[in-house]
Every structure is written in C-alpha cells, then in structure tokens.
Design a protein around this nucleic acid. Structure first.
Lengths: 208, 208
DNA sequence: AGAATCGGATAATGAACGTTATCGAAATAG
DNA sequence: CTATTTCGATAACGTTCATTATCCGATTCT
C-alpha cells in the first residue's frame, strides 16, 4: 500500500470511528482517545491527520450533511404532483428523524458550535443556504410544472419549510410521542394551499 | 444580613454571573472558575450553592425560559384581531432574536444537552409542552372569540408554530441577513388563512 | 430579665485530584 | 531520508474535600 493510500485509509478509519463515537456521546461528550482507540490508532495519529477534535468534527459534518441533502432532494423529486411532493418530502423527513436521531442531534450541535465560532459560522450559513436553494428549486419546478403563482417569494417559502422541518425535528427528538407523523405533511399541504393559486392566463388553462 | 439572606444573595450573584458567562461562551465554553470569579466568589462557593455546572445551568435556563414564555404570551394577548395577534407575536419573536441572540443560543444548547441526558430530557420535553400549551390556549381563545373552525387540532397547529419559530431563529442566528423580518408574520398569516374557516351556524353570523 | 458566651451547624475557601485535548520529540515504516 | 505514527508531557477543566470563617440558638453569669 502506498503512503498516500495508507494515509487515506487511516483518515477513513478515523472518520468512521468519529461518526460512531460522536453519535453516541455528542461532540463535547466524545473523547479523542476513544475515537482513536476505536479506529485502532493512537491519538497522535488523529492529530497528524486532522487539526484536532474540532476539525475532525467539521470534516465529518460536512460529509454527512451533503449526503442527507442529496437524500431529501431525491425523495422529493421522485413524486408526481405538488401535493405528493410535499407529503413525500415530509414523510421522508419524519422517517429520517426516527431512523437517525443521533445524527440529527449532531447537526444541531454542529450548528450551536458553528454559530459561536466566527470561522465556522459562514460554513453553517452556507449549509442553510444550500438547503434553501434545493427547496427553492423544488418549489420553482412545481410552480412551473403545475402552472401556479406564489403569494410569497419561493426563497422565503423555502426558508419557512426548512425552518418548520428543523423545529419539528427538535420537538420530536425531545419527545417523540408529542409529534404525530402526519403533522408535517398536513401543515405543508395547508401552507401550499394558501401560498399558491392557479396562474392567471398561461398555457393550458386547466380549471376555470 | 441574616444567614438565609446572605445565602440567597450569593446564589443570586452566582446566577447573574452564570448568565453573563454562559451567554458569552456557551455552556461548554464557560468555566466555573470564571463564573465564580465574576460573581466574586471561589469555585467552592459555587459547589456549595449548586450541585455543579450542570445544575447551575439548568436552574438558570428554567428561569429564563419562564420569563420569555411570559413575554411572548403577553405580546400576543395584547392584540385585537387574530391576524394582528399572529403578526404581533411574530414581530415580538423576531425582535427577541435580534435583542438576545446569546440567550437563544443557550436555549439551543440546553436542548442539545438535555436531549442526551435521560435525567434532563423530561425537563426539556416539559418546556416544549409548556410552550405548546400557551400557544394552544392563544389559538383556542382566538377561535372562540372570532367564531372560527380549525382544519387541524389546535395542539398540532401550536406545535407547528412553535417549530416554525424555532427554525426561523436558528436560521437567523446563523445568518441574520437571510431572514426578512416580516417572513414569520407572513407565513403565520398564510397558515392561519388556510387552517381556519368561519364557523358554520353559530352566534352572530357576520358574513354570508 | 438582660447581656455575654459558648457550641453546633452552615457557608465559603483554596489546594488537590482525575480527566481531557493538545503538542513535541522520538521511533518507525515506506 | 521523509512522512507517519507513537509516547510522554503539559495545561486547563470540573469536581471534591479538609479547613477556616461566620452565624444562630441555647446556656450562663450579673
């Protein structure tokens, strides 16, 4: 194994261990010793491959967030009507909360940590912006496809939806019983019914 | 000064210092040394008055959350129409984010910390439940007062509103420019317009 | 009876302890 | 010989504990 491959391999092992340990204990609760041990290395190796606990955490988060953003976008795009897209996306989100609560908790810690640190804050903001862009695009697609008009700029609607998703996740993580599974879908449906109207005088005037 | 008064006084001073230091550095970033020093005591005094850093933090949070819940409820109750109540509450929330971002950050840390700890989790859940009850009551009042019917149980609508508020706060804390001040009010207005309809056949049939 | 004093309890101190993240010099592998 | 990993040292942190200072209630003395 070449040096480069070897190094990449230890990085990978460290990241995998970090994912597991961080998920179990949270950012502050996790110890670099445990991470390094679980990866089968010493802590020095960790510091040789990363700038420290914080850097390791940030790299890991970057990766995980990317993956989840892709998943959500995919789940939404697969649906047909705008109503189905909303409920489909909502359902996907709720199951994600159920399936990987640890990871969501980590995202929240990443946020709390990043907002305080001037170095990290832009990265957190960019993550939100990225998610907003994805949702905005989905809304724009739906609007064009189904010939609708919006009461609110798509970006703002997207922000609200993202905010709603976050807030619901927070409540469900604190008390799973308090949040019915269909709630998010229902609210989204209501929101869309109020925020959209048929476009006036365009293309195939379907209804009216 | 009597013994009891003296003790209450140091507790108060410690709590005030804790509020300041926690706000500045966050829960994990704050050191008990700094808190004790700022209060003008030794760390031992802190441990004599509280069970430790965690206990101090929890007591402080309990207090602050109570206060904020009162403020919000007051801001909503003061308004006349249901639309004004929504926008009034939303405005109050947005200014609160602007005015005390540090405190909101602390709430988030309190949440992240509490969700992991089996001892603290019920307390966090109870805080959410309390806020839901307040909002539910406000909705119920509005519905009765303006003779409306709901498309969704008031509790669920309340949960969604709370979630939305939380999520918007998170985004605004990460990037204040990304969140227009009127957004929350607008979305609430849309949500209410979709979630309510005039009650059929009750009392003074105003319109229709 | 009123004032002074004593004893037990309580509050606060500050030094000590174990744990943690971090770093640099040595050792090892490519 | 260079790059990567190891090992030991260090400083900071939360927490504990023996010690000191302080207060309150009861007892004693005038």
């Amino acid at each position: 194994m070449t040096r480069e491959q070897s190094r990449a391999h230890t990085r990978e092992r460290l990241l995998a261990a970090a994912r597991s340990v961080f998920a179990r204990h949270g950012f502050h609760g996790a110890s670099v010793d445990e991470i390094a041990a679980q990866a089968g290395f010493s802590t020095g190796a960790l510091y040789s491959n990363f700038d420290g606990k914080e850097d390791l955490f940030l790299v890991l988060m970057e990766r995980e967030i990317d993956e989840h953003a892709r998943e959500i976008a995919q789940a939404v795009r697969a649906r047909a009507s705008i109503a189905e897209r909303a409920t489909g996306g909502a359902r996907q989100w709720m199951t994600m909360i159920d399936r990987e609560p640890d990871l969501l908790l980590l995202f929240m810690e990443f946020w709390a940590y990043g907002v305080r640190d001037p170095q990290v804050r832009p990265k957190v903001a960019e993550r939100f912006a990225q998610m907003r862009r994805v949702i905005t695009q989905l809304i724009a697609d739906g609007v064009r496809e189904f010939e609708l008009e919006l009461e609110l700029p798509a970006e703002q609607l997207a922000l609200a939806i993202d905010a709603l998703a976050d807030g619901i996740a927070r409540q469900k993580l604190a008390d799973p019983q308090a949040v019915p599974d269909e709630l998010m879908g229902n609210v989204l449906a209501l929101l869309f019914s109020a925020a959209t109207r048929p476009a006036a005088g365009t293309g195939t005037r379907s209804a009216r």
